[in-house]
Amino acid sequence: MRARAGAAASLGRLRVIDWAPLLVLVLLCGIIAAINPRFLLFGNFVRIAQAAMIPLVLAIGETFIILMGSIDLSIEGVVALGAVLTSLLVKNGANAHDLGVAGVGLVVLTGGLVGLVNGVVHVRLRIPSFMVTLGTWFIAAGIANAALGGIAVRINDPIVRGLVLQRVLGFPWGVWLALGTLALGWFIQDHTRPGRYLYALGGGEELAALSGIPAARVRILAFTLAGAFYALGGVLSGAQLGLGNAQVGQGRLFTAITAVVVGGTALSGGEGGVLQTLVGVLIVTVLANGMVLMGVSPSIQTAVQGLMIIVAVSLSIDRKRLRIVK
């Protein structure tokens, strides 16, 4: 009888939590539109979409990791590496390479390789993911820096530049690419075995192992995929700036993690997903957009995001289940 009462209570709690992020997004849009109606102009929607595309691609990768209850801090390093490699492999202002789309493919593969290293070291050496990825963050950023020696390289490839400059139905190609990534992420998460195993590992890794789930392989795969996504984010960053330099990653980790947790994916794992992350990314970008419209200094954004992380995480953590938190 006691069990039943408990189950019902958690049911009610979860339902509210499930819808809260969407509600926040709608409220946020309403408030900003009321203060400044220019928010509702189509041009502003395009601006928001363009601002959201890179965080979305990155946050989808991070969502996979957080679903398992782990964390990946290497985003900024891999983004920098991705942007720098893009600028060196496609038609550019520093060397004679002109690999075009194949170059982009190589960049994504490289990101996957960094993710693979993350996963293998994390799983085989049994080191917590935040430590491994803290290390690879700096390794990847160091490689990006060393490759360029602190300078910036122009990107002249029409396809890469076209991701930002050419529009379809009013939105740049990059936005459609980000949405395609979202669809891919959703398919992996909801319709493939590895995707479902992310939830199983997040829900209880020891129990999942009892059912014969290959936990190590799933973890390595997830980190690899995430790395590839970050590198794609790096390509987009390079496209947006029109150049590759080692600083393009700055601030990306923070925004991605904020978006994931604000969207409702629990840090403890097993709850949430990429659609929630889309909502989270929109909350973060709409808020930033709104602050610009209302004339608030953009440099306060990091501070606001920090507070959002604390609020979102503390709302989603099931404190009864945990006594020891490190």
Binding site: Y199, A200, G203, I213
Partner: peptide, 23 residues
């Protein structure tokens, strides 16, 4: 696993029988 559906739990680790072309 409480975060999965009942059906997923029943066939957890044995989804291969229901998977075609990875889906």
């Amino acid at each position: 696993l409480l975060n999965l559906s009942v059906g997923e739990n029943i066939y957890l680790g044995n989804e291969a029988a229901f998977t075609r072309y990875g889906r």
